[in-house]
């Protein structure tokens, strides 16, 4: 029977393909949990091929909020983290989940909003601006996902003297529970203010072909610096993680060559990240 043979052949081919997919786990693959901003801006798409060329290691990343990324690391489901919530990171290391935290680059957070600026916050400091938004009950769109940006936002509210936990019930305070770009899109639709990292905002501008619905209103404040770090998952906590590959990545991204590459990464002609790794 010819049909039988063909079916059998299909089955074997499928099995082979399946085994090949299973085998990916055996290949030199480094799995990283990272924030949505590094993925959304395209930085990792830019770095991964260079990393592969330099070391032969394939970088696979899962883009989630910093909170979720730390959780993935705690569960031993990834080998390395690239995140931006320094205090949460330090707690993570203190708990014994991660080792060797190294700062790699930063950009800054900015407060963006509709061009007509209904709350009138343009040019203010970050904390003043937030206080004004709260007073005016202007719409503010929050990530609400325990991401690095969200954590930063909470810190800013506290500094401004407003308890972020009480904001939940305010009708003008909207939580998206989604990534930064999604949150920017919600803010555009709702004509609200939001806190974003500069990199993602540039990407947002790029998507809208230079006709953004939101504009930068607050920037340059020292308090809203956005520091990115890499953390290796502690092999003592997670025996199965590929710490050797993680260390290779950590060394590679802090090397002068790659630091320069990060500085060279541009979107719409604008630099997104400023490298600041301390050389060993």
């Amino acid at each position: 029977m010819n049909t039988k043979k063909v079916l059998l052949l299909c089955f074997w081919a499928l099995l082979a393909l399946f085994l090949a997919d299973l085998g990916l786990a055996e290949k030199k693959v480094l799995r990283m949990a990272t924030t949505t901003s590094t993925d959304n801006t395209g930085l990792l798409d830019y770095l991964a091929p260079i990393f592969k060329k330099d070391t032969g290691i394939e970088l696979q990343w899962i883009a989630v909020g910093t909170g979720k990324a730390l959780k993935l690391g705690q569960n031993c489901d990834v080998d390395i983290l690239m995140v931006h919530a320094p205090s949460a990171e330090k707690a993570f290391i203190k708990a014994g989940y991660g080792i060797n935290r190294r700062e790699i680059m930063y950009n800054d957070f900015i407060i963006v909003g509709p061009p007509d600026d209904p709350a009138g916050i343009k040019g203010m400091s970050a904390t003043e601006a937030l206080r004004k938004i709260a007073n005016q009950k202007a719409i503010f769109v929050s990530r609400g996902d325990h991401s690095g940006t969200h954590k930063k936002e909470e810190t800013l509210w506290k500094t401004a003297g407003i308890d972020p936990n009480k904001l939940d019930k305010e009708p003008w305070y909207i939580q998206t529970g989604q990534g930064m770009l999604a949150t920017l899109n919600v803010a555009s639709e709702k004509r609200g203010y939001t806190l974003t990292d500069r990199g993602t905002f540039i990407k947002y501008e790029a998507t809208l072909k230079g006709k953004p619905i939101l504009v930068i209103l607050v920037e340059g404040d020292k308090i809203i610096r956005n520091q990115y770090s890499v953390i290796e998952i502690n092999p003592e906590h997670c025996p199965n993680v590929k710490n050797d590959l993680a260390r290779t990545f950590s060394d590679w991204i802090t090397s002068p060559k790659i630091q320069q590459a990060i500085a060279n990464f541009r979107l719409m002609g604008k630099q997104l990240f400023i490298p600041n790794a301390k050389t060993k």
Partner: peptide, 10 residues
């Protein structure tokens, strides 16, 4: 967990 199947197609 030991089979490392999370985040894979299988």
């Amino acid at each position: 967990g030991q089979y490392g199947l999370l985040f894979t197609l299988p």
